[in-house]
Nucleic acid binder design. Structure first.
Length: 735
DNA sequence: ATGTTTATTATTTTT
DNA sequence: TAATAAACAT
């Protein structure tokens, strides 16, 4: 039985899986079988140690990771896997607060505010606190408040840490913001964690309830936890101390979201008896890729040196290429993808292009479109952030919780129903003066016929709106969410509003609403009651990567951040330039620079078989075009691992001597060719060759480049001078 | 109340 | 550049 469950684990993995009593820290390098260890450890607990899955909680950062864990566990445990508590920190806390939050004065039907909701409430808080939005950027105040919450500081606690005038301002906004949240019966993402921690700290009954249930706690991606999340984990584990955390400090790329790698040190301090297991064997990448990764991460100072190894073959060399512009860079990627597909039988779905910023996806999308290459763009304009999706959700939220002011103000005049800025502003001010929530204030104003604040027309408009919402609220209890959604879009005229909108995107927007409805159907079928609450919770805590559908064969375009946790046989990293990776904003802070390096490391370690690194000679940024200096990170890759570098070498005969980079005619070189045409004897200058696409040409030069040869060929006709990699290019020596 | 023009500002975004 | 927000005019 015992050997059964842990069969196939290497000694370190087995050691981790078998350590079930007391604290455990698993430092898991990329591709070291982390998820495998977690799932097998749980299976071991259940099948060998007889622990009920009901008494195990596994916390992750993404719904996707949680689902993957559950799926894999189902294969090991069957239906019993469903008894396990697995989910994100936020989902865990939301259900904890939904269940027991009343003890802390929380309304059962609280809504969860996302980034956008938070910012619009914050904007109001800043207005009310009379803070000049020009001097104090919304984003930075938001970040400061979020950071305070992430270290468990409520306004009162934050007040004691205030040292500068700026922080004084933040405090004033923070207080106001919390007031508005409370009034809206809303929690932001940070509140979910913070309030859960406070509840467990302050209510012995609730703490005991969770203690008696959870015997074992596991935390995945521990390097990404913030102080509050770690505090939560510690509280939950304080009775049995059976806490297992898994992470990799080298893959910490979310410090800007208050993740604190020091939690790993804190863990060892808090649990001096913690067993530490290192998972260093990599099962994902070829040796060349792993060596590249190791050399890339090595220069970081704030780092514990760690060995990574693989028994895999070296595999193909890393390809480093320079393109002239980002357009050419994208084209080179697409052409290489096509080549791999045709010559190497690589599936499109096995390839991913990774970049630092979303704006870079544009050139890639265009190239894909031009070449008719199916692609899948992750992130970008995210589904749940789309206006039409948020509008419909806002209606449902107000139905569930009319105190939700952010949603209420969002929909009160969408579609336009003659309740303009002015009316709303006056009504909101009146409500505030009378100490009423907005919804109640509107009601009271209507009852008083405007009370001298609103004119008759506005009163009539508001009354119509309130009647509409009251009607919907009545119906809500009688039907499932999907049906309710249908009723909402019809009765409010929202569907018509979309379809008649002038911008011509109506159809597309309506499609998105339909998609949202599809998810409502899913919830409706899953839950016994109407499922409104479940649906709203789901859409609040779900992200787009979560339903990354890998059903269709398409090239994946993804940011480096989002790529964490994924793997692809072929990875293209584009924009390997100073200012982009590392990003310009991170270049003057050594700590941030180290995070950029980790980001680069994360990208590289996604690759299983082939890795391509591209940089451009010039890149358009914010209108203008700036010279692209190859990223400093490229310098850290040993030359012998690289197939070719076209950087700073140029054929002199084309009359561009002295200019780094590639000639303007050279638009397609490097992306074409075939991987099978390696020749025993390298070509020499003067040899006549033929190329499948470019036709006849004469070899200008042939120089060794790593294990390969770089051939410069002058082709006849308009193909011009090209530099090709001997092992890739379909060159044939002509007789 | 709403459509139009000008100004502003550009990372990453697990939840 | 291009997307969005605020100011402005209708």
């Amino acid at each position: 039985m015992q050997t059964d469950v842990l069969a196939g684990l290497n000694p370190a993995q087995r050691e981790a899986a078998e350590h079930i009593e007391g604290p455990l820290l698993i430092v898991a390098g990329p591709g070291s079988g982390k998820t495998r260890v977690i799932t097998h450890r749980i299976a071991y607990l259940v099948r060998v140690c007889g622990v009920s899955p009901y008494r195990i909680a596994a916390v992750t950062f993404t719904n996707k990771a949680a689902r993957e864990m559950r799926d894999r566990l189902e294969r090991l445990l069957g239906g019993r896997a469903l008894e396990l508590t697995s989910g994100t920190f936020h989902a865990f806390c939301a259900s904890l607060l939904r269940r027991d939050g009343q003890l802390a004065g929380l309304d059962r039907s609280f809504v969860i505010y996302d980034q956008e909701d938070q910012q619009s409430l914050l904007k109001r808080a800043m207005e009310e606190a009379k803070i000049d939005p020009k001097r104090y950027a919304l984003g930075s105040v938001h970040a400061a408040i979020s950071q305070a919450k992430s270290v468990l500081l409520e306004p009162a606690g934050y007040a004691t840490t205030v040292k500068s005038y700026y922080e004084e301002v933040v405090l004033r906004v923070y207080e106001r913001y919390q007031g508005l949240l409370a009034q809206s019966k809303a929690l932001d993402f940070d509140d979910l964690i913070l309030r859960a921690v406070r509840l467990l700290e302050q209510s012995p009954e609730v703490l005991e309830k969770y203690h008696s249930r959870y015997l074992h706690l596991m935390v995945d991606e521990f390097q990404d936890t913030n102080v509050a999340q770690y505090a939560l984990a510690r509280l939950l584990a304080s009775k049995y101390r059976n806490v297992c955390v898994v992470g990799d400090p080298d893959q910490s790329i979310y410090s800007w979201r208050n993740a604190d790698i020091r939690n790993i040190l804190s863990f060892q301090k808090d649990y001096p008896d913690a067993k530490v297991v290192n998972l260093g064997e990599n099962y994902r990448s070829t040796r060349n890729i792993l060596e590249t990764a190791k050399n890339l991460i090595a220069p970081n100072k704030a780092r514990i040196e760690r060995d990574l190894w693989t028994s895999k073959d070296p595999g193909p060399p890393i390809v480093v290429m320079e393109a002239h512009t980002e357009g050419e860079e994208a084209q080179m990627v697409v052409e290489e993808v096509e080549r791999l597909r045709k010559r190497e039988k690589v599936r499109l779905g096995d390839c991913a292009v990774m970049y630092r910023i979303n704006a870079q996806s544009r050139a890639l999308e265009e190239a894909c479109l031009r070449f008719g290459l199916p692609y899948r763009l992750i992130g970008g304009l995210r589904f749940y952030q789309r206006k039409e999706v948020k509008d419909v959700i806002a209606y449902l939220r107000v139905i569930q919780n009319p105190y939700d002011e952010v949603s209420l103000t969002r929909i009160i005049n969408t579609p336009p129903r003659a309740i303009g800025q002015r009316t709303l502003q006056d009504a909101a001010a009146w409500a505030r003066d009378n100490n009423l929530p907005l919804y109640a204030g509107l009601q009271a104003l209507v009852d008083r016929g405007g009370d001298g604040v609103l004119n008759a027309r506005s009163v009539a408009a508001v009354e119509r709106f309130l009647t509409l919402m009251v009607g919907l609220r009545e119906e809500a209890s009688k039907m499932g969410v999907a049906d309710l959604l249908d009723l909402v879009v019809e009765r409010t005229g929202y569907r018509q509003y979309l379809m008649e909108s002038s911008d011509g995107r109506g159809e597309e927007q309506w499609e998105n609403v339909r998609e949202l409805r599809g998810q409502a159907v899913e919830v409706q079928e899953l839950v016994e009651e109407q499922g409104l609450e479940a649906f709203l919770e789901k859409v609040a805590l779900v992200s787009d990567v979560d339903h990354l559908d890998d059903s269709k064969d398409a090239l994946t375009l993804i940011t480096l951040h989002q790529a964490k946790g994924l793997e692809f046989p072929v990875v293209f990293m584009v924009g390997m330039e100073e200012g982009l990776l590392p990003h310009a904003r991170s270049m003057d802070d050594p700590a941030e620079l180290e995070e950029e390096r980790r980001l680069c490391y994360v990208g590289v370690t996604r690759a299983q078989e082939r890795l391509y690194l591209y940089h451009a000679f010039r890149r358009s940024m914010m209108g203008g075009s700036v010279p692209g200096v190859p990223s400093r990170f490229l310098q850290d890759i040993p030359r012998e691992l690289i197939a070719t570098s076209t950087t700073a070498r140029v054929p002199s005969l084309s009359g561009m001597a002295g200019r780094p980079g590639r000639g303007p005619m050279d638009a397609t070189a490097g992306g074409n060719g075939r991987g099978t045409a390696s020749q025993a004897v390298p070509l020499k200058a003067g040899d006549h060759v033929t190329h499948k696409q470019f036709g006849e040409g004469i070899v200008v030069s042939c120089v060794a480049a790593g294990a390969d040869h770089e051939v410069t060929v002058a082709f006849k006709g308009n193909a011009g001078v090209k530099r090709l990699l001997l092992s890739f290019a379909p060159l044939e020596k002509a007789g």
